[in-house]
Design a binder for these strands. Structure first.
Lengths: 228, 228
DNA sequence: GCGATGCTTCGGTTACGATCGAAGTATGGA
DNA sequence: TCCATACTTCGATCGTAACCGAAGCATCGC
């Protein structure tokens, strides 16, 4: 009867709308305070506090005290991956939350998926890297090629630094809006960080969407062309 | 605020213990009746009926009427994949349901994951296929090689038949007990079916575990050796 | 037709958990 | 020291959904 891991527990954790909203907000990768999370959940701070305690007990969140603030983040990358995969599943059944809201288009174009770029632009970037032979793709798997290493060096990313981390360099992540893979892993993170540093793009205040500057957009599109 | 797909809904569906048990049971790949599912959920048929209706409305289950029986299965492969990925996540946090039960060892050795082989033996099989060059593995991705096609022909599987289906041939699936990949996709399904046909193994009554016959086990182990 | 079986629907109870007001604890600044 | 801010804990309320008994359909075998 009772076989295997307890999926009901984490299902229940994600199953509450307020908690789901908070988790979704944390997919933006930024650490948020309890008060901020209460706002996105549409509840009071007291209620949020109990929710956050539960999520932390379930090891979905981690918190870091800083002065009188308490910053919450997703516990680790695996949580982000889990959430994105559930989103992909939900999107596949056409269970979008209500009707597409005003921010939907921006979200579909470019957004943060935990710590890397997702949406149309994220998919485009991976496609382009694969097309030029910088990344090998077999099925779902991704691997950086020799040629890819030098390509990235030109962009300004030293792959050698990334390789020291225990986290995999390339990972594919199913994009819920595009229903295709985009690039995750430490390389995906480094690329997004690189775009922010260069001023090509910036995060928005209360949302996961990523806004490109006109110049940044031009650069990005020419750096990652799509074959005709 | 309300961004992206509705993960709370499917979280809630999975979050109820009775429903989670039923879904887990259906991971065995066999279609089960409402009465059987009520038993695994530990509830009466009436209650099970309402649960099943909800799961069906949420597109997690499909049902097929056959005489006065109603057979329920997972809606499609994506549901199985989602559940296994949640199990993998839960297992990773050490949130096994209680303490390992008596059936746990058998389950870890060999079990059905929706329609293919998982557990120690499932992981071993994939490792062996990769080691002999029958399958290419890059990151998470898997692809059958030319050499692999003939290997499978010897085993008694005509890959050409499988290729006609829209479902991908090779897919990697994260094994919650081994925390490594095993082989899913139509090829994974065909291999397990092949073992059943040959009488090497059989499913058990109320469980996901797969029991090998002594002879079948010998054959299996020699067919999929592990390098020293 | 009739009873038996498998399942669903209805009605009413119950329990759990989400919620918030109010009070309590910690940190920072003045 | 004193107050303001950030957050948690307590206590109580309330709503929802899980649950089961009983009744209602549907299908099978006879």
């Amino acid at each position: 009867m009772k076989e295997g891991p307890d999926i009901a527990q984490i299902g229940a954790l994600i199953g509450d709308p307020a908690r789901a909203n908070m988790l979704t907000a944390l997919m933006g990768g930024k650490a948020l305070t309890a008060t901020e999370l209460a706002a996105v959940g549409g509840i009071t701070v007291q209620t949020a506090s109990t929710h956050l305690a539960k999520l932390e007990a379930g090891h979905l969140l981690a918190q870091r005290k800083q002065g009188r603030h308490r910053y919450f983040t997703l516990a680790d990358e695996s949580v982000g991956k889990l959430l994105e995969s559930i989103m992909g599943f939900a999107a596949g059944r056409g269970q979008l939350r209500h009707r597409p809201g005003p921010k939907e288009p921006a979200l579909r174009k470019a957004r943060i998926c935990y710590d890397h770029l997702a949406g149309d632009y994220g998919v485009r970037m991976l496609d382009s890297l694969v097309a030029r032979g910088a990344i090998d793709a077999v099925g779902d798997g991704l691997a950086l090629t020799q040629a890819g290493e030098s390509t990235l060096k030109c962009i300004g990313i030293d792959v050698h630094d990334l390789k020291s981390s225990r986290r995999p360099l390339c990972r594919s992540c199913l994009d819920w809006s595009e229903r295709r893979a985009h690039l995750a892993g430490s390389l995906g993170k480094a690329l997004l960080a690189n775009f922010f540093e260069k001023g090509w793009a910036r995060r928005t205040a209360g949302s996961r969407s990523v806004i490109f500057s006109p110049e940044g957009e031009r650069q990005f599109l020419s750096l990652f062309p799509v074959e005709a």
